[in-house]
Design a protein around this nucleic acid. Structure first.
Lengths: 148, 148
DNA sequence: CTGAATGCAAAAGCTTTGCACTAGG
DNA sequence: CCTAGTGCAAAGCTTTTGCATTCAG
């Protein structure tokens, strides 16, 4: 069952061109860089349009957003080695009890001309509050007797 | 050998209090939330001071910045499964050939009340350009005959 | 036709910075 | 003393949004 129904999306020249240009490069450009690329072929496109389309394309799974969990910067005074879970709903972060995880840095380094110095890993999830909120919302939206 | 010499830092009331408050909580607060906490005990502190001190404390290794790779958002039209390296110098991102990595999501989920739905992993490194820049800089700063 | 999408510009975060003043060592 | 650090306010950057207009289906 589909909870949120996505509004039907249109195939505009702007969206097509953005995807095409993004596929042409392997530089993982920022929105602004994409704006620059696309503008060469469509000078009147606006940065807002680029942002809106990247968002749509990401929802459709046609592009990946690399923002590593993103959102606002958070701070932790616990400096011993441990991992975090970040809530996809509200951005809250919690500690995880220490896990021993093997990350093949050597192998990664072998596949690139970057000098690999480490890695960033965080788990993604839904915090209890956001789980409850989602459940309440689902209940509201579910007409009488409908099962999922 | 120490390349950049850090200017000697002072122990101000503000810096001490920020660290103290951050140690008191386990919520991984944002700069603004820390500002709120600290302001209860030192009402005239400014948000700028909080940012500056968090930066210093992070450099000293007393606090961790959780910004998941951070910087500007980047996009990728390659949607098949692969990992990335991000340059710590300039933020540039490159693809890595596919690696099979085992992330113990189950174990992580067992240690939290968050509903774990996945993880974010990226490698960190220095891109060739930034390696060159760093080497050039080191050469400049190295007086005649000095070896590292 | 209808409303999704656009261009433009303004607004909204979050973070950094310039400057004159304060205070740590 | 000397200069790192502070408070305040302004600026900076990236991303989002409101609105009248355009255009895809």
């Amino acid at each position: 069952m589909q909870l949120l129904d996505t509004p039907k999306s249109r195939t505009t020249k702007q969206r097509g061109l953005i995807l095409e240009e993004l596929r042409r490069v392997d530089t993982h450009p920022t929105a602004d860089e994409i704006f620059g690329l696309v503008r060469r072929k469509m000078p009147r496109i606006s940065l807002g349009t680029v942002y809106r389309n990247l968002e749509v394309l990401a929802e459709q799974g046609l592009v990946l957003r690399l923002d590593g969990g993103g959102g606002q910067r958070r701070f932790d005074a616990r400096t011993e080695d441990h991992y975090h879970v970040r809530c996809l709903g509200c951005g809250r972060v919690a500690d995880l009890p220490s896990l021993s995880i093997e990350i093949p840095e050597r192998e990664a380094a072998a596949g690139t001309d970057f000098q690999v110095v480490g890695f960033g890993l965080e788990f993604l999830g839904i915090c209890p509050e956001c789980q409850a909120a989602a459940a309440a919302l689902a209940a509201d939206d579910t007409p009488e007797g409908v099962k999922e």
